[in-house]
């Protein structure tokens, strides 16, 4: 089939970008979306032109590298699917698709469809861990974990850090990402000692990075390739209120 692409091209962080139109004349329905771009890129390279830069690595939907907007949808139209797992049979002959990078102040465009998501790392640095030095761990089965807590924690831990939630959110908020990490750790007994401080610091870090706030649109949940629930955001809010208003400053303090 034949697909027409309008792709955002931008040569560097400070460069001015614009849309460029490309025709993909012989797309197979069995191709993944990225394979279609591979074929286009090989054609561009053979012509001595710069290929379209897009991030990708595992191509199995787990590393979180890939992702861009396809016709205004993060990761494209198939639910719970990253763009690397999206196949062209989802589209039809003659479709015209607009590809844009994730857009957020905290995700500056590096090149074409590649953005800088290091803000996520800094949110984790603010407290997205359980302070356990190697070797100091107790016997694994010494702390039983309720199965439902473990399962809920896992649901949140499934986040791959792709940034689709930020990209899709009308407010460019990182609440789903941050709340997922908080829920992952705070639902486990191991995460309790640092629960309050973790919640406060990660929310503040999210603000410092310049993400927007959550107004409960739930667009993030709809495009999340791992189906992470927005109810985690409510838990984050509750934890933040508890940490900032209803606990003494030394409670659950951690190393600096």
């Amino acid at each position: 089939m034949r697909i027409k692409l309008h792709v955002w091209r931008q040569s560097g962080r400070d460069a001015k970008g614009d849309f460029e139109t490309h025709e993909c004349p012989d797309v197979s329905e069995h191709m993944s979306f990225l394979e279609m771009l591979d074929v286009l890129n090989e054609r561009l390279e053979s012509a001595g032109k710069a290929p379209i830069a897009f991030e990708h690595d595992c191509r199995e939907g787990i590393c979180g590298s890939c992702g861009f907007m396809i016709n205004g949808q993060a990761h494209g139209p198939q639910p719970r699917t990253t763009v690397c797992q999206l196949h062209m049979r989802t589209f039809k002959d003659g479709d015209e698709l607009t590809l844009e990078p994730w857009r957020a102040k905290a995700f500056p465009v590096v090149r074409d469809l590649v953005v800088d998501r290091s803000a996520f790392d800094r949110i984790i640095q603010a407290g997205g861990y359980i302070s356990t030095n190697t070797g100091s761990a107790p016997e694994a089965n010494s702390v039983p974990v309720r199965k439902d807590s473990a399962d809920k924690s896992f649901d949140a831990a499934a986040c791959i850090g792709c940034g689709a939630c930020v990209a899709m959110c009308p407010n460019a908020s990182a609440s789903l990402f941050t709340a997922a990490k908080l829920a992952h750790m705070n639902l486990l007994p191991q995460g309790q000692p640092e629960r309050l401080v973790r919640g406060e610091r990660m929310v503040v870090a999210m603000d410092v990075e310049g993400f927007g706030h959550c107004t409960n649109h739930s667009d993030c949940e709809a495009v999340c390739p791992k189906g992470i629930s927005v109810t985690n955001i409510a838990m984050m809010n509750r934890g933040f209120v508890e940490a900032t208003l209803f606990s003494s400053p030394r409670e659950g303090s951690t190393e600096d």
Binding site: A137, K147, L188
Partner: peptide, 15 residues
């Protein structure tokens, strides 16, 4: 080590 870090391994109903 992994359990202490919060790795959510599969668990039995007894925890």
């Amino acid at each position: 080590q992994a359990v202490a870090q919060g790795v959510p391994f599969a668990r039995e109903y007894g925890g």
